[in-house]
């Protein structure tokens, strides 16, 4: 059995364990368990890269996104003072997102395409990584806007929205850098920044427009806080689903 299929199931188990640890057992065990899950997840990514380098592994985003999200959670956990309830709830949601994303990657794999020669470009790799970091930021934004509805005090909700906005803004930064990298790659490789053979670029644009909408909703204050939080959560979720749609294949049961 190859390393990749084994490691993804282990990563799934460890992310689920981290969620249980955070909720029930002991918060102090979160970092080691999550770290173990991250290591295993990274092994799976490394395996896919080893099968493709210097070319780009195809449709790697659903496997890479949980790893990047785990990194962000771990970095936040390690630099921050003991987390408050809000932060813990956000981490729980982030762990849930990691688990669901990786599970979907296992059940709907699209790992059968061979890498193509033209993907041997620094801009192609930058597009993948920047886009994944952006997506991970969006997921944290969704988590914060979801926690908004769990918290009851106005001050806490205000903090949740500020954090959601902050993560959404970072997500837009990296998402935009990803799109620019993709355009550079496309221009160098095909002569035009948008190649209409592959419609996946349109889903990236859809996610970008949705998040630009979210940011402008915040700046315009046209909607109230609650409505904006709902839009952050639902609109963000739609953006994530759209951005990953092209990377999933048909249902493949593991049995």
């Amino acid at each position: 059995m190859t390393i990749a299929p084994v490691s993804l199931y282990w990563a799934l188990a460890l992310y689920a364990a981290a969620l249980v640890v955070l909720r029930i057992v002991s918060r102090r065990l979160l970092l080691p368990v999550l770290g173990a899950g991250l290591v295993v997840n990274c092994l799976a990514v490394a395996y896919r890269y080893s099968q493709a380098w210097p070319m780009l592994p195809m449709h790697l985003a659903p496997v890479l996104t949980p790893a990047v999200l785990a990194c962000l959670v771990m970095v936040r956990s390690s630099v921050q003072a003991p987390p408050d309830t809000r932060e813990r709830q956000v981490r729980q949601l982030a762990l849930l997102f990691m688990f669901v994303c990786l599970l979907a990657a296992q059940l709907f794999p699209k790992d059968f395409y061979l890498s193509f020669l033209r993907s041997d470009s620094i801009f192609a790799h930058a597009m993948l990584f920047a886009g994944t970091v952006g997506r991970a930021c969006f997921l944290l934004s969704i988590a914060w806007s979801t926690v908004f509805f769990i918290r009851s005090s106005a001050e806490e909700r205000s903090v949740c929205m500020r954090r959601a906005l902050s993560w959404a803004a970072w997500g837009v930064v990296f998402w935009t850098l990803s799109m620019f990298s993709g355009e550079m790659w496309s221009y160098l490789g095909w002569g035009t920044p948008v190649v209409w053979d592959d419609p996946a670029i349109l889903l990236m644009m859809a996610a970008w427009f949705l998040y630009i909408t979210l940011l402008h909703l915040h700046f315009s204050r046209a909607w109230g806080l609650r409505a904006r939080a709902l839009f952050f959560a639902m609109g963000g979720f739609a953006a994530i689903v759209l951005s990953l749609l092209a990377d999933f294949g048909p249902f493949r049961p593991p049995w």
């Binding site: 419609p199 349109l202 889903l203 859809a206 996610a207 427009f209 949705l210 630009i212 909408t213 759209l242």
Partner: peptide, 12 residues
């Protein structure tokens, strides 16, 4: 922006 998001999904 909302209309554009919907439109490009149609385009996809």
């Amino acid at each position: 922006c909302l209309l554009l998001a919907a439109d490009v999904v149609w385009g996809y």
